[in-house]
Design a protein around this nucleic acid. Structure first.
Length: 485
RNA sequence: GGCGACGUGGCCAAGUGGUAAGGCAAGGGUCUGCAAAACCCUGAUGCGUGGGUUCGAUUCCCACCGUCGCCUCCA
């Protein structure tokens, strides 16, 4: 079974053929770190996390590079976002960058997003960017004006191939006053001359200045992945001008194709419009994590296709929490059942169940291999849960079956999608060990009350524990407990 | 205006030229002292609207309506 990817560059699904057998070189546009990350960022990076995890699970050796933009990302008025943020918080630009870069990694760690293999910073790759700009000038694709350097879009016949735009058509829609030093209104800055007292500036062959936003991704992806690499990812909202500019710069400088596959994620919407900083309609990841488990946020994101837009609402997140809880409950039951599972059972039944589990793995794999169809992959886990629950209820699940089911939850639900916690909440600290013991004492007392038919007392214990977020569940084999999600 | 995406049961969301996965919510039932969890049952004669192609379309084509993204602020 082989992987098929929807390639935005071709506008169609195509089989994935890596440049080097067994390896994947992948770049994803990272955040500009001038403020806390919100759920829109979470959608993109959780989506790519699932993609990378699946590639690795499939046996590929992946090098995953995701940049940190800490210079060069301009606002409409030409001011650098980092400088504006630094002024707002009255700190050094690099202090601001450090603050929000840490915040970003904290959020990603909390969401269980596996860290990229390399997280290069734009400000740490100024020489590489300058070198690339020089190459572009030498090859006639860029020109110097008053200490700034612009990329000449007319010098690139392929310009617009990713976003499907043509230069002639774009001129009509421009909304920004064009700097008259540009030769063509669509030309974009590779290097910007710094005003006198500009805080962020570096020496260059063209005088002191700072790099444009797009060139960093070209320079850094080339450095760590090569001029031609496998997959380039990002949010669809950056398809133009950013991704388009990356392609133009890279291909004009190196004369080889840039990324072979373009994988872009749909935007996160709120009430039908994009969640964004500028609209102020955003929910930070930190805030969302105050009321929802990371697995619930991941489930919310992965229950739709990465390429489609998703609509955020508090209700949607609640529904996701319930969904993830259903899987969790099933995993708990399997773990419990494993404690007293029969070693052997009816051979025919056992074979049927093992078949079902194989089927689950197959369905999951074919879903993920079909352009990373995570919602369909999740459905495979739900279908399995239903069958396994049934098998446990009717006592026909043998140890072998349960172990295999648990392996599926752990590997596919946990390692690949990250919606199943890797194990039951660990109780490693002294405090929590004591807490567990106390809960067990209370359960014992309650069960004594139940035996004595003192239900008022039994219910009181259950209710009070529930208020603390501890849920009791009475089963045929005793009472179990869990922390409410 | 240009480019792109989308419109599937109350909500979310897969999918296919041959008769609609899954989740949430709802109703009924089994289990339980009561719950919880779990399991069983119920629900779109229809997949934006109107045409067309076809033996047959939700799936292909055309038109229209609506929503969203991008067109140098944003993952």
């Amino acid at each position: 079974m082989s992987l098929i990817i929807y390639n935005v560059l071709k506008r169609e699904k195509e089989p994935f053929r890596p440049i080097v057998e067994g390896r994947v070189f992948m770049y994803v546009c990272g955040p500009t770190v001038y403020d806390h990350a919100h759920l829109g960022h979470a959608k993109t990076y959780v989506s790519f996390d699932a993609i990378v995890r699946w590639l690795r699970y499939s046996g590929y050796k992946v090098r995953y590079v995701q940049n940190i933009t800490d210079v060069g990302h301009m606002l409409d008025d030409g001011e650098d976002r980092i400088l504006k943020g630094a002024r707002r918080e009255r700190v050094e630009p690099m202090e601001l960058v450090e603050r929000y870069m840490r915040s970003y990694f904290e959020d990603m760690d909390a969401l269980g997003v596996v860290r990229p293999d390399i997280s290069p910073r734009a400000s740490a790759h100024i020489p590489e960017q300058i070198e690339m700009i020089q190459t572009l000038i030498e090859k006639g694709h860029a020109y110097v004006v008053n200490g700034s350097v612009y990329f000449s879009v007319e010098s690139d016949p392929d310009y617009g191939k990713l976003s499907g735009r043509r230069l002639e058509e774009m001129e009509a829609g421009k909304r920004i006053a064009v700097r008259d030093e540009k030769r063509h209104p669509m030309d974009f800055a590779l290097w910007v001359k710094a005003p006198e007292n500009h805080i962020l500036q570096w020496p260059s062959p063209w005088g002191r200045g700072y790099p444009g936003w797009h060139i960093e991704c070209s320079a850094m992806s080339t450095k760590y992945l090569g001029a031609n690499f496998d997959i380039h990812g990002g949010g669809i909202d950056n398809i133009f001008p950013h991704n388009e500019a990356e392609i133009a710069q890279s291909e004009c400088a190196h004369g080889v194709p840039f990324a072979n596959y373009w994988v872009l994620t749909g935007s996160l919407l709120v009430n039908g419009v994009k969640m964004s900083k500028s609209l102020g309609n955003f929910v930070t990841i930190k805030d969302a994590l105050k009321s929802h488990r990371p697995e619930a946020l991941r489930y919310f994101i992965l229950s739709g296709k990465y390429s489609n837009p998703a609509d955020y609402s508090a209700e949607a997140l609640d529904a996701a929490s319930k969904g993830v809880e259903r899987i969790d409950a099933a995993v708990r039951r399997v773990r419990d059942a494993l404690k007293h599972a029969p070693e052997s059972g009816d051979e025919g039944t056992r074979g049927q169940l093992m078949n079902l589990l194989d089927q689950t793995r197959m369905l999951f794999a074919s879903a993920m291999n079909d352009d990373f169809n995570t919602p369909l992959a999740l459905a495979a886990l739900f279908d399995m849960s239903k069958e396994i629950n049934h098998a446990i209820s009717s006592g026909i699940a043998t140890r072998q079956v349960l172990e295999q089911a648990l392996a599926i939850y752990t590997e596919l639900g946990g390692d690949v999608l990250g919606v199943v916690r890797s194990r039951a909440a660990p109780s490693t600290t002294a405090d929590s060990e004591r807490e567990v013991a106390l809960i067990e004492i209370l359960i014992e007392m309650r069960n004594e009350a139940r035996k004595a038919r003192d239900y008022a007392r039994a219910d009181a214990i259950r209710d009070r524990l529930a208020k603390l977020g501890i849920v009791l569940e009475d089963g045929p084999k005793g009472t179990s407990w869990r922390i409410a999600s």
